[in-house]
Amino acid sequence: MNTKKILMAAFGLVLMTGSALADKVVISNWDGYMPKDIADKFKAATGLDLEVAVHATNEEIMGKVTASGGQGFDVLFVSSPFAEALHKLDLLAPIDPAKIPNLKNLYPEAAQLKHDPGNTFSVPYAWGTTGLCYRSDLVKGEPSSWNDLLNPADDLKGKTTMLATDRWLMAPAFLAAGVSVNTVDQAALDKARDQLVATKKTLLAYDDTTFYSKLVSGEASLVEAWDGWCNYGIAEKPEIKYVIPKEGSDLWVDTMVITKAAQNPDGAAKFIDFLLSAENGKWVVENIMYKTPNKAGMDSVDPAMLTQYPNMAIAPADLLKYEQLRDLGDGAKAFAKTVSEIMAAK
C-alpha cells in the first residue's frame, strides 16, 4: 500500500514539473550575450515575464531544437548558418514586419544578408568579423595574415588557440588558401585538412568560449577570435588588439529567430521589437561590446567606445564585402569527415 502511495506522490511531482505559463516568453541565448537585467527591463516595458535559457554553442541549441521541434522556446539566438538550417527544416515561424515595427532601425545592409535577404525568418542581432586577437606585448611585430596563426613563429608555438566550432575551425585555412569559406570541394578540404593538422601541433587548445581570458592571463598570445569577444579581452587588458588578416574574414551574423512551435509568438515578436528600439539597441551594444545591425542603437553609442574597441567601427558596407558562412546541405558529410580527420590527428 505504502509503496503505491509513494509512487503516486512521485508521479504527481513529475507531472507538476511539466507545467508552463502562457504570458511568458522563453528565449535561449549565449551566456553573457545580453544585458544581465534584461528580464526586469522587458517586464517593465511589456508586462511579460522573460525566461532566459543559455546555450554554450550553436550546436547545443540546434541539438535541442531539432530533437524537440523547437517546443518550449519562443526566441532563439543562433548564428546565420544554423538559422538557415532551422528554416530549411521548417522549424521557424516567418518574421512579420507588422509586429516588429522597430525593424526600421536596422541598417539597410541588414536586409541584404545572403542567408535571408529581406529578413523573412531571421532578424540579425549582432554581426562582425573573425580575425586575430593578440597580445601586442607578447607577439613580436603585428600579425597580418592567417598564416601567422596557421604556421606560427617558434615563440608562439603552444600559445595560440583556434575556434572549436567546425565551420570557424576550417575558415582560416580556406581564407589563407583563397577559397570560399563554404567550399565542400574535396581537394580544397584535403588541403585545408593538411594545413590544420600541421597547425594542431602548434596549438594550445581549441577554444570557443574562454580564448579571451587565456589572452588576459597570458596562457595564450595569439588566438582566432570573433571581434566582439576580443573586445572582452581588450576591456581587461589594453595590450590586447584585434586585426582582420589581409586574406579577409567571414561575415558572421548572429540572429534572432522565432520557433514555429512558439507558445507565445506575439510575445516573441514583442521581445525582438523591444531589443531593436534605439534606446535598447544602445544599451545592448554597450553591454555586450559587439557591433549590432541596429543603426539607431549604434549611432547613439558613446564615440569613446568606438575608439577603445576599433573593430566596432567597421562600417556595415565593409562587412558585406566578406562572405557569410552558409548551411552546407549535402556537402556537410564530407565537411564533417574532414573535421573528424583533424580532430583525430596527433
Binding site: T57, T66, D166, K200, V339, S340, M343
Partner: peptide, 21 residues
Amino acid sequence: GGGKVQMVGNLIYDQFLTARD
C-alpha cells in the same frame, strides 16, 4: 583535452550535435 584529444564519446557527441548526422 582542450578539444585536441578526440575520443569516441566526443566523436559521437559531434556527430549528433555538430554534424547533425
